[in-house]
Write a protein that binds this DNA or RNA. Structure first.
Lengths: 206, 206
DNA sequence: TAGATTGTTAATCGATTAACAATC
DNA sequence: TAGATTGTTAATCGATTAACAATC
């Protein structure tokens, strides 16, 4: 497994390839970048370059062995490695993410949620008071934090996570978070997505 | 309100500006692109260009009137226009999105969810059988569809939405959807986000 | 008037795509 | 061998950033 110099845009396409490959694994023993590109409506050189950063098992004329490529993508994407994570913010979105079993498939295991509101604390439901976050993170060696608090509290929660040893943050609050250089923030900005949708409709319907 | 030639990257930054402006509306009567750029760690020319595509009320030396700019951004982003939408896929994610009240703020009003599994249908909970989708969409003039079904069913659901008059699709399934040219697909690809997080950790911890 | 800030034109950068050489 | 496919080098494209002119 080598993880060098891979662009974010490439990285974000890899799960798409993996998903496509899984859907056709019974159909193709071997598969080419050309076929994948066709199916996903992408440029074939782009697919070839993306795959080259994950695998070097492609053979001219033959392409890739589908099962091998699936395995290489899964390994590369860490789907076979469990990453423990916590959520901060046990509102509707936080609870939904915690209850969503689909993340297991991607190697993400959400252990616990934290909230500052005493009324929502419920250790049986795996919701703990935020005061216990630092100790929990250190003890369980948590490296991924998920932020689902309102925008105005997101920065302080972010600071707390960084202090507690978290290295990567998945941020659902529509704010820019300031973090030290070596910490990654991945924004899941639903407001941004909605902006694109709404703008398209305004265009279409005007 | 003019919606011409605005790039997707600009569009996705606008909600960030709006959110920041709301957080400082009591502090600054006037605000400049420079201050916004500083706060959000963006390039000031970028912010200036982005704002120019939404507003022309900026004055040299003074900047923008904060409240006016907030209003202009909200109008542009359609936050003051209600867009009715439906969800297809009443699993955990679908239910969570339907229960999430936060979208109201962005002008998104989720009216109903649809599912093909008779066991989850519950009209009191606003979950209807998928067979009723086309009629509902036409009657209610639904233009936005949200897809939260498993990957393998996403394309057929997408086709059904397009047939039923939907113009913009918010896709939570990790697949590429084929749509006619004038239909917009906005992918909310959590698998892609997780790929970026996981790759960062693999880099850091190796 | 001076200078902070806007808005524009030009340069740079990174990602995508096209052209081509290598090879099973 | 012929040609489909890989992988690489060069060209293009779009977005970001830098330099600058306009102005309240």
């Amino acid at each position: 497994m080598f993880h060098l110099n891979i662009s974010k845009s490439t990285l974000q396409r890899l799960p798409l390839y993996l998903n496509y490959l899984k859907s056709v694994r019974d159909k193709y023993v071997n598969i080419s970048a050309t076929i994948i590109a066709d199916a996903l409506k992408l440029n074939d050189v782009q697919v070839r370059k993306d795959l080259a950063s994950v695998s070097s098992s492609g053979k001219p004329k033959v392409g890739y062995v589908t099962e091998d490529l699936i395995k290489e993508l899964e390994d590369f994407l860490g789907y076979n490695t469990v990453n423990n994570a916590i959520i901060v913010g046990a509102g509707k979105l936080g609870k939904a993410l915690m209850g969503y079993s689909g993340f297991k498939e991607y190697g993400l295991n959400i252990l616990m949620a934290f909230d500052s509101d005493p009324k929502v604390i419920d250790e049986a439901e795996r919701i703990m008071p935020i005061e216990k976050l630092p100790e929990f993170c250190r003890k369980m060696n948590i490296k991924i934090g998920i932020i689902t608090v309102p925008a105005q509290n997101a920065q302080e929660v972010c600071d707390l996570l960084v202090e507690s040893g978290v290295l990567a943050i998945w941020n659902f609050a529509p704010v820019h978070l300031r973090v030290p250089e070596d910490i990654l923030v991945q924004n899941e900005n639903m407001a941004a997505a909605l902006a694109v949708l709404s703008n398209h409709l305004a265009e279409k319907l005007k």
